[in-house]
Simulated assay, not measured.
Amino acid sequence: MSKSLGPDLRLALVATDEESTQRLQTRLNTGTTWVSRLLQHAVYRLLSDPQVHELTACVEADKAVIGICLGAQLVGESLGAAWAPSPDTEIGSFPVTLTAAGREHPFPTGFGDSFDTGHWHNDMPGLTDDATVLATSAGCPRRIVAYSRYVYGFQCHMEFTPDCIEALIEQDEKELAALADRPYVQQPDQLRANDCTEMNTKLMTFLDRLAADYAAR
């Protein structure tokens, strides 16, 4: 299995005191940063799927494409840029900040220098030589990436809705509790209190401008 998609199989014998053994066991516990073999198989199927090949063809043909979360990483991978772990786990609603390039870009015009978006990730998309970072956050330096005029990676979730958030909480509630001490991880009550309306509106504005610009080529 590729190490970039999770742990490979290794065997080690460790002789140590009981306290160190417990600390080592804690480090080896599975969690949101651990990738199971099931997910490795899922990614293999995705990369072998004709639809993913179609995505690659669209990117290479400079069609209009926006990849969100894993989709952003796959867009980067299709262009030869390997994804990377993000400096911090981010789960919840936190501000992103437009870079100088982002403030000059026509699609997020009027969004303000900083605005809240949804987050639920540990990783970030790779950068090609031609890629431009349009937005960053406190925990991730690659929040919105422009790979070309019409190809983007969103390592954020401006499409979040209350129903979507509730489904994610149901799936990851134990992991959220385990990450309660992380600076950019909100707990269920905080997640449910977030208002997605403004980020949804900004996403639709971005998409409308992208579509209009693409149609006017």
Rank of each mutant, 00 (worst) to 15 (best):
M1V: 10
M1T: 12
S2I: 12
K3H: 12
K3F: 10
L5A: 06
D8I: 09
D8N: 09
L9Q: 11
R10C: 07
L11G: 09
L13C: 11
S20N: 12
L28G: 05
L28S: 10
N29M: 15
G31N: 14
W34D: 08
S36K: 08
Q40L: 06
H41F: 07
A42Y: 13
Y44W: 06
L47A: 03
L55E: 01
A57L: 01
A57P: 02
V59N: 01
K63E: 13
A64S: 15
V65R: 00
C69D: 06
L74N: 04
V75P: 03
G76V: 10
E77V: 11
E77N: 12
L79T: 05
G80F: 09
G80P: 12
W83T: 12
A84T: 14
P85N: 15
D88Y: 14
G92K: 13
F94M: 08
V96R: 07
T97F: 12
T99D: 10
A101C: 03
A101T: 09
A101P: 03
G118H: 00
H119R: 12
W120L: 11
N122T: 15
P125A: 07
A131D: 01
T132S: 06
A138D: 14
G139T: 08
G139N: 02
C140M: 00
P141A: 01
P141M: 00
R142E: 00
V151R: 03
V151T: 01
V151H: 01
G153S: 03
G153M: 01
F154Q: 01
E159Y: 07
F160K: 00
C164D: 09
I165E: 02
I169V: 11
Q171G: 04
D172E: 15
D172V: 02
E173R: 15
E175G: 14
E175R: 15
L176P: 06
A177E: 12
A177L: 10
A180I: 06
P183F: 02
V185T: 09
V185Q: 05
Q186M: 10
Q186N: 02
Q187L: 14
P188H: 00
D189N: 12
Q190T: 11
L191W: 07
C196W: 05
C196R: 01
C196V: 10
N200P: 03
L203M: 10
F206L: 12
R209T: 05
D213F: 06
D213P: 07
Y214G: 05
A216H: 09
A216E: 09
R217K: 13
